[in-house]
Nucleic acid binder design. Structure first.
Length: 789
RNA sequence: GCCGAAGUGGCGGAACUGGUAGACGCGCUGGACUCAAAAUCCAGUGUUGGCAACAACGUGUGGGUUCGAGUCCCACCUUCGGUACCA
């Protein structure tokens, strides 16, 4: 009997549905195994051949595990909040929920065509109120907790308040804002409600704050650091500028150390662990306070990883935005400093990265080195970043390349401090070799001896201490957008308060347009009656207008699959204690410092609250490589846009007949013949020749196109490997290969088995590779032989 | 610059802890079947020389360890991914 994949597949899919073959229970005598894919954003372009690579791998593995006697959780869902649906809504007026629903239906159908063994009864959608109710609930827990360094976990804010009212905050050791003052119980009790709430915001794990953010004017929203690449937005490639705005933030810094520690316990790719380690950027060093000459009330704190070089300090540099700059600038330097501040503020991220000139300005003031009382000039320069450390550095030109460059450029002194250092005229030498010279109390010591000596002295005098500094910043958690989870907060007297838990979910309101309001408020500002009434019949207060970022829902979705219909809890304790954690997680490496870091952070927080049993939610992670698209380009005449030249003839001379056919006098009449016009890959054959008829019908302006063909009578296109994307016309839809021509136009009818085997046959799952179907017939032959046998 | 991954036939890629390099597939060549084509089947296919048996050379480059290296060590080159005034 002939191999007929479509009949076989339809028959068995029907059987799976009728008998609920893949529906699984949260109880079983078998051992459990949880296989998870990163869920897709349901884009309008539908599923392309790259999506299923990881899904096929996990499906095969799930089936294997089932046969080995495991109870396997293998679910699928949709990360359905996101920018494209909203952009589409802005241009068409169509509600994002409708387009999202349509897109999900397409995805679902395409996934079903591939014969996956998902338990569809567990499907989740992050944009569904029954799902985001719990995203909002977790947000509320974050708001209600602070990070206690002694317990080394998150604890209730309400307990912190009790401590404040009985003993103040002197004994409290918690993660909080740098500028948190210390106070006694009496002082706390004497504060107004507003003052108390403002102080508590400095402790909460999520809180609004004025901060410099990546503002993208084209998208009309704020982006997180990992959403900005090379100074432009990752999505769309629009310019991003620094802007001071009030934003919700997540105190992920509180978990920096545990996020590092946890990496040692998971079986994840080295490259991902490495990226997370670098992103967290732990560096050990010391903080030192420098006095300021003539300003007895001021001290400049710096962070340094090389406190041993402190006798080599010859100047000090502040970030141009540093709060002391105005006060420290002497009248004769005021013009210059203000000019410099203006200039740096005007420079965009892109400018800064493109051109790294040595620039700076002298304030006219001097700092005092606490160790030797030396006066050193205070400069400002944009190589010092306001957002890292204290926004001020002690400059040691003999030990740091940038300081050396700066000193040379502005003719500042350079003091060698180690006998091993070479010629100070050449360049800095950040060595730790040798013994110290010109270095007061550490003269003659080695690095190992010098550091504790200095830190002890600093701590005794109260002028500094050993300190660990992290590169990671608190994560900005609000977006000036419509299509996201509303933040369950209302504002009263300029203070944010949580809405009552019984009001969840706080459902997205209807708006007339999806654009910011005329006054520049986020789209939710358009909603009527977007107000909260804490006490029935009492006064109402405005809700928060921003929504949560894309990574909110994806930070905990893996727990919802365990118990998706639960309306009492995010997931029952029975379910989470049965499934515990993901045993195998497969997804793209592009989420290394986004989703994969944020979700670990939320998980650790939920672990602290006793909501989940494992401190790391994914035991093993595998990154599947991206399947790239092979784009096709046509060459056309610059002067005559409807004349197309076959790729192999672009630099040829043409015969008189050819010129006549094209209707030009000479080759030169065509002008520049340039590529760059993407043509739909579905109009191009295996050998790169163009389906001319199809091309004429593709777009109306191509109807009268003239083609100069190759000697064999075909028109050839140029190829390039690029990311698969709708705009590049290089998206290949798996349906075309799986379904037959009765089901979809141009369907090849290979069937799901052939398609799945072929994707696995393409090469190792982890490796990126361009899509090509040249070998699919080999797999098809195998299946037919196998069927015959 | 720094961190990470990877370099094997015409192509995708195999080769587990050091033990017959190139499995399997694509492509290509020849043959069978057919009036013919497609499909299918059979055989061959790292490079060079040879009718052949066979020989020499072959895993980015140069060294090294070993009875034996694609695999281990050192130095370098190239490609891809990440990241970058982080004090």
């Amino acid at each position: 009997m002939e191999y007929n994949p479509r009949d076989i597949e339809q028959k068995w899919k029907q059987y799976w549905d009728d008998h609920e073959v893949y529906k699984i229970e949260n109880t079983s005598d078998k051992p459990k195994y949880y296989v998870l894919d990163m869920f897709p954003y349901p884009s309008g372009a539908g599923l392309h051949v790259g999506h299923p690579l990881g899904y096929i791998a996990t499906d095969i593995f799930s089936r294997y595990k089932r046969l080995k006697g495991f109870n396997v959780l293998h679910p699928m869902g949709y990360d359905s909040f996101g920018l494209p649906a909203e952009q589409y809504a802005i241009s068409t007026g169509q509600h994002p929920a409708i387009t999202t629903e349509n897109n999900i239906n397409t995805f679902r159908k395409q996934l079903e065509n591939l014969g996956f063994s998902y338990d569809w009864s567990r499907e989740v959608r992050t944009s569904d109120p029954s799902f985001y109710k719990w995203t909002q609930w977790i947000f509320m827990q974050l708001f209600n907790h602070y990070y206690d360094k002694i317990a080394d976990k998150a604890l209730l804010i309400s307990d912190l308040v009790k401590t404040f009212s009985t003993e103040g905050n002197k004994k409290v050791n918690a993660v909080c804002d740098e500028d948190t003052p210390s106070f006694t119980a009496d002082e706390w009790n004497a504060m107004s409600e507003k003052e108390q709430q403002l102080l508590l915001l400095k402790y909460r794990l999520t809180f609004p704050e004025e901060s410099y953010v990546n503002w993208c004017p084209a998208l009309g929203t704020v982006l997180s650091n990992d959403e900005v690449k090379d100074g432009v937005s990752e999505r769309g490639g629009y310019p991003v500028e620094r802007k001071l705005m009030k934003q919700w933030a997540m105190r992920i810094t509180a978990y920096a150390d545990r996020l590092l520690e946890g990496l040692k316990t998971v079986d994840w790719p080295e490259s991902i662990k490495d990226q997370q380690t670098n992103w967290i950027g732990r560096s050990q060093g010391a903080s030192v306070k420098f006095g300021v000459e003539g300003h007895a009330d001021k001290q400049i704190g710096v962070f340094t990883t090389r406190v041993d070089t402190i006798y080599g300090v010859t100047f000090m540099v502040l970030a141009p935005e540093h709060e002391y700059v105005a006060a420290l600038t002497t009248p004769e330097h005021q013009d210059e400093i203000e000019k410099y501040q203006k200039w740096t503020a005007s420079r965009s991220e892109v400018d800064r990265q493109a051109e790294k000139r040595i620039t700076g300005a002298f304030t006219g003031s001097y700092a005092v080195n606490p160790f030797n009382g030396e006066k050193v000039p205070i400069w400002i320069a944009d190589y010092v970043l306001a957002g890292y450390g204290t926004g001020a550095v002690m400059a040691v030109p003999s030990g740091d390349q940038r300081d050396w460059n700066f000193a040379k450029h502005f003719n500042l002194p350079i003091i060698p401090i180690l006998d091993a250092q070479k010629n100070m005229d050449e360049a800095a030498d950040a060595t730790k070799e040798g013994r110290y010279i010109n270095s007061g109390m550490i003269n003659g010591m080695t690095y190992e001896e010098a550091v504790p000596t200095l830190i002890n002295w600093l701590e005794e005098k109260g002028l500094g201490k050993g300190k660990i500094q992290y590169r990671i910043r608190n994560a900005v958690f609000s977006r000036q957008r419509y299509w996201g989870e509303p933040v369950p907060v209302y504002w009263k007297n300029e203070i944010p308060y949580l809405i009552d838990e019984s009001e969840l979910p706080l459902v997205l309101p209807q708006v007339d347009k999806y654009l910011p309001t005329e006054t520049g408020e986020p789209p939710l500002g358009r909603a009527e009656d977007w107000k909260y009434t804490p006490t029935p019949g009492g006064e109402s207060y405005p809700y928060e207008l921003s929504t949560m970022p894309g990574w909110a829902g994806s930070s905990w979705y893996f727990y919802r699959y365990m118990n998706p219909q639960n309306d009492q809890e995010f997931c029952s304790q029975d379910a989470v204690n049965y499934w515990r954690q993901v045993d195998l997680y497969v997804g793209g490496p592009e989420h290394a410092v986004g989703h994969l870091l944020y979700s670990r952070f939320w998980n650790k927080f939920m672990y602290d609250l006793g909501l989940v049993p494992e401190e790391e939610y994914a035991k093993k992670l595998i990154n599947q490589g991206m399947i790239q698209g092979v784009s096709k380009f046509v060459y056309r005449s610059f002067n005559h846009p409807n004349i197309y030249i076959s790729y192999d003839r672009v630099s040829d001379d043409f015969t008189p007949e050819e010129l006549k056919y094209l209707g030009v006098n000479s080759r030169d009449d065509l002008g520049f013949v340039g590529a760059g016009f993407h043509v739909d890959v579905n109009l191009v054959n295996e050998d790169s020749s163009l389906d001319i008829e199809g091309f004429r019908n593709w777009r109306s302006e191509n109807k009268d196109a003239k083609f100069l063909l190759s000697s064999d009578g075909k028109y050839y296109c140029e190829s390039a490997v690029e990311k698969m994307s709708k705009s590049k016309y290089n998206v290949v839809n798996p349906d075309k290969l799986v379904l037959d021509s009765n089901e979809i136009e141009g369907g090849k009818g290979y069937g799901a088995d052939c398609f799945r085997m072929y994707e696995m046959f393409l090469g190792p799952v982890e490796v990126a590779k361009p899509w090509n179907t040249s070998g699919i017939d080999g797999v098809n032959r195998f299946l037919r032989k196998f069927w015959g046998l």
